[in-house]
Design a protein around this nucleic acid. Structure first.
Lengths: 205, 205
DNA sequence: TTTAATATTGAATGAACATTCAATAAACAT
DNA sequence: ATGTTTATTGAATGTTCATTCAATATTAAA
């Protein structure tokens, strides 16, 4: 009665997480389109029927994968953004550095991410999930920009959007670069592009 | 002997095009991951084995689909860019208008495009095809910018890259917007963002 | 300790999958 | 007209797919 998260529930929660994570890792290796329930089961050394026990259909499992991925995505930005929102003054270079820190996040797979993004064009539920996430991130950045005495007077909502457009567009291009040196150079270019966005507004004031 | 593109070849070419286009349209409707050879065959009212006759494996067919898609992608930009490259002076507003004309191209499906982009992360051949295309487009825009007396003095290669980053990032965000009015408003914002990029450089000179 | 609920197993299902093959039809070259 | 190449057909292959089901094991509640 007291323990709502009883052992019974923790077994369920643990298995569900294990399955979704196994699904994600498998999708990383073979692609989302080739990640089957049988393959997940083999990887986790459980029968496929156990997966169906927790996720009655594959659609539901994919839905949970999307949630998992968007949580990861948020995990990259959220601490960066919330940390910045607590500091007194806005350090532009620091902000930009952190916005592009996705580079170092090995837990994030671009192939799986774009495969899931493609699903938004035919699945309304997934579409809403993606929209919600990006809306939330943009709002957080907006709040940070508002704290700056100069930037705060301008259209921070729009500026936040402009920044994320560059960040997303940058990662689209960076995804195609194999050479490490070229990658680093381009990354610096794109960081500067965001800095320019912030400075133009400052100069304009 | 004279006619290298004889009837024999035109039958083959016609069928191959028909199959790849059928594949593309099917992928638009059901998603790339659900587009099977049997479904393409049904749609074209031919036996599946005829598809295998022209495309021995599905991998080859997907490869041809990528080529088809990238040709479409190029079709959006190329006429815009080449037309601009022949005009004497650079009309900034016109350039930007044309860079964002993807909005009106009903032949282009974002869902399929991003699904294919996701394949670049595990397929080196597809990766190269995507890289080549974006490289070519960037070079063309670079040449256009070089013609401008003011912009031509600056780093046009880098500017071209910055512009495409905004364009790609913009379409990423626009892909999630359902409301037509909001879409139009955001589109104008992103166009302005590119115009700002061009003006900053001009001012800086 | 008995009962009820949940977790796990393994076998089986039919549908869809890419692919193969032999046979026929059409187009082409001579 | 004849022979050769190519286009097309339809049936069949074995594999993988998501999903179902009944049986068993484990855990929680009484």
């Amino acid at each position: 009665m007291i323990d709502l998260l009883s052992m019974k529930n923790s077994i369920r929660a643990a298995r569900e997480s294990e399955i979704v994570e196994g699904f994600y890792k498998l999708a990383q290796e073979v692609g989302l389109e080739n990640a089957s329930i049988a393959k997940i089961a083999k990887r986790l050394e459980i029968p496929p029927s156990l997966i169906m026990h927790y996720f009655p259909t594959k659609d539901i499992l994919i839905q949970e994968l999307i949630t998992f991925i968007l949580e990861h995505y948020q995990l990259i930005y959220e601490p960066i953004l919330t940390q910045l929102s607590t500091s007194k003054s806005l350090d532009v270079d620091n902000l930009v550095e952190r916005l592009f820190s996705r580079e170092w996040n090995l837990l994030f797979d671009d192939g799986v991410f774009y495969s899931c993004y493609a699903l938004t064009f035919r699945n309304p539920t997934i579409r809403e999930a993606y929209k919600d996430l990006h809306g939330a991130l943009r709002r957080t950045l907006d709040e940070i920009l508002q704290q700056d005495p100069v930037l705060g007077k301008g259209d921070t909502e729009r500026l936040a959007e402009q920044i994320f457009v560059v960040v997303e567009g940058a990662y689209y291009y960076l995804g195609m670069i194999d050479d490490r040196v070229e990658y680093a150079t381009k990354l610096e270019f794109f960081k500067q592009q965001v800095i320019d966005l912030l400075k133009v507004v400052s100069v304009g004031e």
